[in-house]
Design a protein around this nucleic acid. Sequence first.
DNA 1: CGGTGAACGTA
DNA 2: CGTACGTTCACCGA
Length: 584
Amino acid sequence: MPAVAIDRATTHLGPGWDRPVAVLVTAPGGAEPAAYAVGPPGAIVTIAAPELRVTVAEIEDRWAPRWVVWSAREDLTALVAARVRLHRLWDISQAHLLLHGGGQAHPGLAWAAASGLSADTVPGPPRGDLFEFAADRTDPRDAEDLVRADGHLRPDAVHGTWIERPSRLRDWARAALATAAAQGERADSLSPRLRTTIHAESAAALLCLELERDGLPLDRARIEGLITDAAGPRPHSPADEIAARTARDRDVLRHVPGREGTDLRNPAQVKALLAAVGIEVPTTRKWVLETQRAAHPVVPALLAWRARERIATTYGHRWLAAHVGPDDRLRGQWNACDGAAGRMTADNGLHNLPATLRSGVAAAPGFRFVRADLGQIEPRVLAAVSGDSAFAQATRADDLYAPVADRLGVDRPAAKIAVLAAMYGQRSGVAGEALKGLQRAYPVAMATLDEAYAVGVRGGDVRTFGGRLIPTGRFVRDAPVGADTAADAARGRFARNALIQGAAAELFKAWAVTVRAWTAPLGAEIVLCLHDELLVHAPESAAPEVAALVERALDDAARRWSGGAPFRFVSDTSILTRWSQAKA
DNA sequence: CGGTGAACGTA
DNA sequence: CGTACGTTCACCGA
């Protein structure tokens, strides 16, 4: 290990930190991680920047610390590219999102929240104009101080180029430690599970960087064939493109002689076209048209056209060229936590690839996919969230709806509809009697849902099982609380759903990061996370072992996530070469 | 040119 | 369609 300097300026992190802590910081805008500190609370060790890439790995091996970073994306992208693997993380941005809600975080906001300052007073990015220069000059402390007189971090440090030498970088590291320490205390005061959730969400942020680096393996020839079936061959000129488009349109317009001029991409014109053949519809949405299939041959033609058009425009040849690399991997940006309930999101079709294209998602030669999806995740999560012991009992079954049906005295389909209706407020599909049965059989679970709904209606705050804040009033916009019953109800449904969806997202991420940690030594990598489904790319010889680890990781993650409570989660796990193979 | 809503893909 | 997300398109107003 290179020479290290121990900085005796102590930083007290508090009692919740049970292992060595390292801080890894990058100057905002800097390409490489540039400094870090490590040690048990009380000692900070700094190492020269040139050795950093090596030393981070060495520190990881020797101390296995929890790495504190302002954000994985800013601070770890270069290390991920260099294939340095870190195991335990405290991502200040992710922690901030959990503690305070919302979908955006940066050091200025996290620092302010940790310091008890209002988000409204956080300075924006520096504009670099004369007015700002004048404003800075009025601050008596601004020469070398990272923290302004008003308590906020200086914006030219957060967003600019102020951090250009080691002493300033060291202040940046200290600020990170102080922020993390305050977040830890705050977490402990709010929920016994929040620290665990922060650890998992932080690791998920790192997993996102690896997903971006590794991409989703495709069989390019297969995908190209599927696209060609739907959209026509790859165009070589704008004229080709127009010709393919006209050919697709013709399959619909030939059913309506005299109206060939209709623009199928204009819903108003499509509505007029349908009216002309005697079909009156409120909208031209798919599920409306689905009921009119038999009314006229143009309707099924239109529905088929929509499916082909979707592939042609969104998942067509242009998409393939833009987002699939020469290594035949589909790449997009991953976000560890959306603004609403905290699910992962992804760009470039990774989360909404049409099922018809899934046979083109294929393991590389010598590799297999281990695919696993969580069964009945949302009702199982409801049992955990509500603490309803009778409902928890139902999670012991492989099929949760079977014991529920028994208890309600209805058949399985009715039981399923009732449970879903209770969770989502579904009104179509009527389940009145079964719903009353649920109230009697599982009053605690039902009361939890009702309570979340009520909090949403009045625009209050909900915290998920893992401790994530969902500020419902901040979310559903244009809806003054109490002014409009429709908006109130929308917020109620939102809050009720976020409670379940958010907890499911937390469990899923806890599972995913456990799988990441356990299977990496076997040469496996997670290549897709789809809300309740994992796709792991593993060497063929290791696939059975990876599959077993995926199952065990679920038990482990569920136990840690629920604090050891007896809720059962199940996964359907299989080994395949194409994503399409196991879909029931 | 940017914002909005319709439409539709995924869970 | 119960809730979320991302993408593309046409349209609107500047």
